[in-house]
Simulated assay, not measured.
Amino acid sequence: MTADLDLPVGTPGHAPVVVELPGVPGLGGTYARGLATGGRLAVARRTGSAPTALADVRYVARGVRADADHLTAYQHLLGESGSDALPAGFVHVLAFPVATALMARADFPLPMLGLVHLANRVEQHRPLGLDDTFDVHAHAEGLRPHRSGTQVDLVTEAHVDGTLAWRGVSTYLAKGLRLAEDDGAAADEPPRAAFEPPVPTGQWRLDGDTGQRYAAVSGDVNPIHTSTLGAKALGFPRRIAHGMYTAARALADVGAARGDAFAWTVTFDKPVLLPGAVAVRVAREGDGFAYAGWHPRSGKPHLRGTVTPRP
Rank of each mutant, 00 (worst) to 15 (best):
R167S: 15
R167K: 15
R167P: 13
R167T: 14
G168Q: 14
G168L: 12
V169S: 11
V169D: 10
S170L: 09
S170H: 11
S170E: 13
Y172M: 13
A174K: 10
G176Q: 09
L177P: 10
L179H: 15
A180W: 08
D182L: 07
D182V: 08
D182K: 02
G184F: 08
A185H: 10
A185D: 12
A186T: 04
D188V: 07
E189V: 02
P190A: 14
P191R: 06
A193I: 00
A193R: 12
A194F: 00
A194K: 05
P197E: 12
P198V: 05
P198H: 04
V199K: 13
V199I: 11
T201S: 15
G202R: 12
W204N: 07
W204P: 09
R205E: 15
L206F: 08
L206C: 04
L206P: 04
D207F: 03
D207L: 01
G208Q: 00
T210I: 07
T210D: 03
T210V: 10
T210G: 05
G211V: 02
Q212M: 07
Q212S: 10
R213E: 11
A215Y: 03
A215I: 01
A215Q: 01
V217S: 06
S218E: 02
S218D: 03
G219V: 08
D220T: 01
N222M: 02
I224T: 12
H225V: 11
T228V: 15
T228P: 10
T228L: 08
K232W: 14
K232E: 11
L234C: 01
L234I: 03
L234Y: 07
L234K: 06
F236Q: 07
F236H: 04
P237M: 02
P237I: 05
R238G: 14
R238P: 00
R239Q: 14
R239D: 06
I240T: 01
I240S: 00
A241G: 09
A241H: 00
H242T: 02
H242K: 04
Y245E: 02
Y245G: 01
T246K: 04
T246R: 05
A247D: 10
A248S: 15
A248R: 00
R249M: 01
A250H: 13
L251T: 06
A252G: 09
A252N: 06
D253H: 12
A256T: 12
A257R: 12
R258C: 04
G259E: 06
A261I: 11
A261P: 11
A261T: 14
A261K: 11
A263N: 09
A263P: 01
W264S: 12
W264V: 06
V266E: 13
V266I: 14
D269L: 03
D269Q: 11
K270V: 12
P271C: 05
P271K: 00
P271M: 03
L273R: 13
L273D: 13
L274S: 02
L274K: 04
V278T: 01
A279F: 10
R281C: 13
V282S: 03
E285P: 00
G286S: 06
F289C: 02
A292Q: 05
A292D: 09
A292V: 08
